[in-house]
Nucleic acid binder design. Structure first.
Lengths: 183, 183
DNA sequence: GTCCGCATGTAAGTAGTTACATGATTCA
DNA sequence: TGAATCATGTAACTACTTACATGCGGAC
């Protein structure tokens, strides 16, 4: 999804400033599939405004620069559903730097492999905890179900890493006899 | 990973032409985390050649245009390991269009949701089957372990979709009483 | 006789990242 | 006094995608 659509997605849930949209990309439930810095968010909001998909409300603040609170319009909502319905997302490339790296485990040092795997394990644990923090309502909505999806996938990745950690390290150790002997 | 590094990754496993690299991105074990069309592969190979990270062997062919078979050099191998060791991949954004779409299940039609979920289920099944086709050696290498990782993750995503398919469809149906009534 | 696979490339365009620029407030 | 948070933006750059250009061979 492009940055305009993801901004529209955040605004469909609640009105927000560019700054808040960025926080949503970093922390909230959007952090699992959206990203983007100020350099892409602000131009995107300006374009959405020009296209009439959002409106901009200027809010003066005490001893702070003005906020620009963006609200989604009816046309914006329609544009979002159209963007979502227009294509069936056929696949998700992992495009995972971790898998790419582990693919070449034989060519790396055991040290580096263990650092990488351990930090990823910690990251998965933190992510799962973060999603679980939000209490589940009796009647879950799309966001809740997507959160459960995330937990299921993160958990299986986490378990795999925990159980295969040593195997990857052994691979790295086995293929570097020269380096090990030299030191 | 950028296109130059992924090309280098393919060439680290075996020498190949630009055309074959693209096939590797589409079919082989690289298809899980690498992608790129001719428009990015050929310029990347030229740059790698200019930088001395690969060499280019011209192979004449019977009644066909010349092939350019690229081989990785020692410097290329070093550049690859350096690229892999230089940063610890801290996270993997799903950047998943599917999750983004399901997040807004309430705003979509039950029909669209079911099409999307069913096609994704079929895709996961095909992917898992494709990875399992390669027979496992007694002594698995990085590529084999990464394949198992992929299967574990795909399988948990698949199971989640199968078991929550109806819940997503119900969400879409529940929030569109006006549309349903109007028709 | 038309489409698919093999084979390589360029040019124009899109999208997004990174770095820069500004400035007040609050907390340690 | 220095860093972090709030707050918005621009300019330059990087990287990749899409469309175009060319052409033979083989299968249906």
């Amino acid at each position: 999804m492009d940055i305009k659509t993801t901004c529209l997605g955040v605004l469909a849930k609640r009105s927000a400033t560019g700054y808040e949209i960025r926080k949503a990309f970093e922390e909230g439930p959007f952090s699992h599939f959206a990203e983007g810095g100020f350099g892409s968010i602000y131009p995107a909001l300006n374009k959405l405004d020009a296209d009439g998909l959002v409106t901009c409300e200027r809010a003066e603040q005490d001893r702070r620069p003005d906020k620009k609170i963006y609200h989604i319009t009816e046309r914006g909502r329609r544009a979002l559903t159209e963007a979502l319905e227009e294509k069936v997302p056929g696949e998700d490339k992992y495009k995972s730097d971790l898998l790419f790296l582990l693919f070449f485990a034989e060519d790396l040092t055991p040290d580096h492999i263990s650092i990488v795997i351990d930090s990823r394990i910690a990251w998965y644990e933190a992510k799962i905890a973060q999603i679980q923090e939000r209490e589940k309502p009796a009647q879950p909505d799309g966001a809740d179900l997507v959160g459960e999806f995330g937990i299921a996938v993160y958990r299986s990745a986490l378990e795999f890493l925990v159980s295969h950690r040593q195997a990857f390290i052994d691979l790295a150790a086995a293929d570097q006899p020269a380096a090990t002997a030299a030191e």
